Simulated assay, not measured.
Amino acid sequence: MRVSADDLRVRLQGRPILDGVSLSVGEGEFVGLVGPNGAGKTTLLRALAGLVPPSAGRVLLDGRPLCAVSRDERARRLALLVQSAGIGWPMRVSEVVALGRLPHRRAFAALSEADHAAVARAMARVDVTHLRERTEPSLSSGERMRVLLARALAVEAEILLADEPITALDPAHQLDAMDLLRAISRTGTGIVAVLHDLTLAARFCDRLVVLHGGRIVADAAPALALTDPLLRQAFGIAVLRGTHADGSPYILPWHRAGHTREDDHDPSGPDPVRAPDRS
């Protein structure tokens, strides 16, 4: 399965948010969406899910216009984790996670054995099984985020779209979540995740798509995408680079980088960086 954006443009309240965005994500890929605040990351994710209508361009699911795919099929094949999503009433954690099975059930039907098994797998993967009898109001923000991630995983969709999946998690659970997302991608699920932590994004993702001013300015492996000039121009930062004892490279955002007057007023942003053509 593959979800794609083709010259996608989105305007919200008359203001351009995305400007000619094209990308494609297929099975087994773990793609990080990164960029400064207001770059259009969440809007792009919601557009890929069919929740934001494009003003131009289109979203494709396996080559078919997303608008031509039924809601039921979308719900089974595309799972969405929205960072700001609330639960709304005091449901038990097990019931919240079970909501992820709705696309696989008839209206008002009881959970099947397959549903129960999927819910149990999702809770175990995100380490919330011990919370199963707790209700939503009693959860911390980090626990709530893990429960919402479990709900998205319970769908067992072919593509997972995750908006800031490690927000509010402590460092140990951030590492667990990134490890889990990478492991899920290795089983064939395509994952697109909005991330703010460049260190973790560079370490765990196969590709990074960098947005700046509503445009893609890099779409490549982390080492190719996060160049010093791009980080300076898109994020306004300088980084430290190093190599772990196991040979893995890493970067650490270190301080703000000064922009030239030309950089500050250049509407086009950094020169685009692209991975080599894989076709």
Rank of each mutant, 00 (worst) to 15 (best):
N37S: 05
V209E: 04
A120H: 08
A150V: 06
D266M: 09
E136Q: 04
V3G: 00
A183V: 07
P229D: 15
T187L: 13
R121T: 08
R64F: 02
V34Y: 12
V239I: 07
G32N: 05
L149T: 08
R15H: 14
V217Q: 04
L148C: 12
A183M: 15
Q233M: 15
R151F: 02
V96A: 07
E262F: 06
T227F: 12
L226M: 15
A117P: 04
L153Y: 00
E156D: 02
V128L: 08
L18S: 01
V217A: 00
P65D: 02
D219G: 06
G38C: 06
L200C: 06
G190P: 09
P253S: 11
A5G: 09
R186V: 01
A202V: 07
V82T: 12
H130N: 14
G28F: 15
D228K: 10
E158K: 01
A122V: 02
L181M: 15
R71S: 08
L175P: 04
S70G: 07
L12K: 06
V10A: 01
L12N: 07
D277I: 09
V194T: 04
T42L: 11
T260R: 14
R77S: 00
S55C: 08
A110E: 04
R92W: 11
P267K: 12
D6N: 11
L44V: 00
A49R: 03
L160H: 10
I87M: 10
L139I: 10
P54F: 11
L160Q: 14
P249D: 13
R106K: 11
H244L: 15
I166P: 03
I184Q: 09
R77Q: 01
Q233P: 03
I166G: 02
L48D: 02
I87E: 11
T189G: 07
P249W: 11
L175V: 13
D127P: 03
S112E: 14
I251C: 07
R15Y: 13
V209F: 01
P165Q: 13
A85M: 10
W89M: 13
L80R: 03
W254H: 14
G88D: 12
A39I: 01
R46C: 00
D263Y: 12
V59L: 07
A257H: 06
L153G: 04
I87S: 06
S185Y: 01
L200K: 00
A150G: 08
R74F: 03
R106M: 09
L48E: 02
L208Q: 02
L80G: 01
P276Q: 11
L153T: 02
I216V: 13
L99I: 05
D62L: 07
E158G: 08
R11Y: 14
S112T: 15
F30E: 05
I184T: 12
L181V: 03
M91K: 13
S55F: 06
R92I: 11
V96W: 02
L208T: 02
W254Q: 13
G258F: 09
